[in-house]
Write a protein that binds this DNA or RNA. Sequence first.
RNA 1: GCCGCGGUAGCUCAAUGGCAGAGCAAUUGCUUCGUAAGCAAUAGGUUGUGGGUUCAACUCCCAUCCGCGGCUCCA
Length: 644
Amino acid sequence: MKILTLHCDYIRFKPVKAAISKPEEIKKEAKLGNEIKECLVVLSAVEKQDEGNEKAIVKNLVSNVKSIAVQVKAKKIVLYPYVHLTNTPSKPDTALFVLREAEKELKELKFSVIRAPFGWYKEFELKCKGHPLSELSREIKTEEIAPGKKEKGEGAAESEALKAEKKLKSEWFILTDTGKLHRLKFGKGKNKDELAGFDFSKHAALEKLARYEMKKIRVVGQEPAHVKYMRKLELVDYESASDPGNLRYYPKGRMVKALIEDYVTKRMHEYGALEVETPIMYDYEHPSLKAYLNRFPARQYSIDTPNKKVFLRFAACFGQFIMASQAVISYKDLPLKLYELTKYSFRVEQRGELVGLKRLRTFTMPDCHALCKDIEQAKQEMALRFILAKDVQQNIGLDFHNLELAIRVTKDFYEKNKEFIVSLVKEFGKPALLEMWPSRFFYFVTKYEFNFIDSLNKAFALNTDQIDVENAERYGIYYVDEHNKRKPVTILHLSPSGAIERVMCSLLEQAYFDEKQGKNPCLPYWLSPTQVRIVPISEKFINEAVALAEDLNDLPCRVDVDDRPLHVEKKVLEAEQEWVPFVVCLGKRELEKKSLNVRIRRMKGKVIEIKMPELKKLLEQEQRSMPWRPLPLPLLLSKRPKFV
RNA sequence: GCCGCGGUAGCUCAAUGGCAGAGCAAUUGCUUCGUAAGCAAUAGGUUGUGGGUUCAACUCCCAUCCGCGGCUCCA
């Protein structure tokens, strides 16, 4: 049986003339010729080979139609006989039976079903919506589609099956650095919230991750802490004039984000990755992209260009893979590392999933693929990148206490590469959550992530790396080996830091942990928009304050001057509210004594007396060798607008 | 996307069918100050948007946008 489904604004049809000797009787109550709005029209042709298999055909037809209707969110289904889809039509009786049964079963699934009369020439008019899923053709076969097995061109249906199976059979463990696997299990009945199998008493955050991932957590709903901070500090804000999940960055936020981008990119250069840039939009009809895309239907932004329909990329994979597939690569070039900082990647996440900086529709993802010779080389490279990613996160300023490792792996890969997996856990230095899949569902055999556990005990992934064994052949990425033979590469997908927005989110959530513990919340020094604030005690000392600022600025250091006609107390208060790490008040005393009083936020506002050369040394140590950018706002506070 | 809650001055919030308000911020003036809030005056509004009910709507109804929580999801 062949079907063509059209998601329509409306369809209207009217029988004109009988097409067969005994056409179906037209029911009087049928309001023929009226518009049926917001419906999924199923043009259908039952074929010769379906005869005798009616039941199986009906079953598969219903399951296909249901899956499409759910995806496009159509509640009305119009079953429309359309024999022209096939050269080998079945007998009319068979076709009518199939359609009637399908109507019955779809109605039982709570769809509103309208069946166009069988055996008539009909005039009809419809308006198809035109989004990517609005037109789909399917071949309905007699054999059942085994879940998890591929059926050609049925990416969407397959994806649902895959997800269902994944949910059903994942096994969860804690893996320690000795290589011991502790199987995790929730209790039953009264004890259903008890997570047994591992002693979490010294690993509270890991337990939170396990609970979050195994989907049994129930916490009191609250807005995450970073949302308040991101606005209060004039870093980032919502932009209601855009699509949800698209943010705007004020000068300070742009600077913080740019510095993290600079740092991650610098580390990728040092690692030997070749930085590239690829388009953000791709053709829906490109053969390599189609199958991959269909695994995740309707999660892309679609755009109509003058001559094609394109989607916005959700990762840098496409651009880099197509580039690599057209490159001539020798075994001597491997591992070949390609890096791109995607500004941006786009995913149309569900509305209710978006929060602050944690989950966005538009985000900045550093993405580094390594093309490797084989699994062995891929493992070696992944181990190297694991150390790199850990170092990146620590240098950015993330506290290791808040990070937990999760490893996902197929059973097969784990059994053959146990030592390698355990080596990652050893390198991490803490036990890890391990999710084991009975077979491979995705394109990778293993992946790991560093997860940040936030103030609401929810986890989100930062850096991640995967061993991809599928895309090389799909995209045609080959290298030539020592014996002049063409072989597919093995691909690693690394994000060395995770999305830049998520890094910012983690830093703010971490500041909140500090605040809860009675400390002053801070950003790392290298990311503080103002690193040192000079506070002249009255307007008389503004010139001296500016001179001091210019001196420190050469370090380099972002210094500003609060020249507003306010009392010192007030200016100090505001510096603290802005999380300025060092505040220097300047007046007669300092000028006479030729030393400075420096207030240190991190030390609960402790004031130390220090001479200029020592202050410079201190600030240089604070800056380390991290990237630096100039002050994002005017030097004088009196000249600054308020954005929030 | 689904269910529930919310949107009032730049910010935080009050006003429950009957004159739209406070604190902070802003502006102006006074104060020139020593490490977390000096004093006063002025200005600030199509109550998210569009429709409806009513003599009268921030308040009730419908739609829609944006945000929050939960579900779901996270390539």
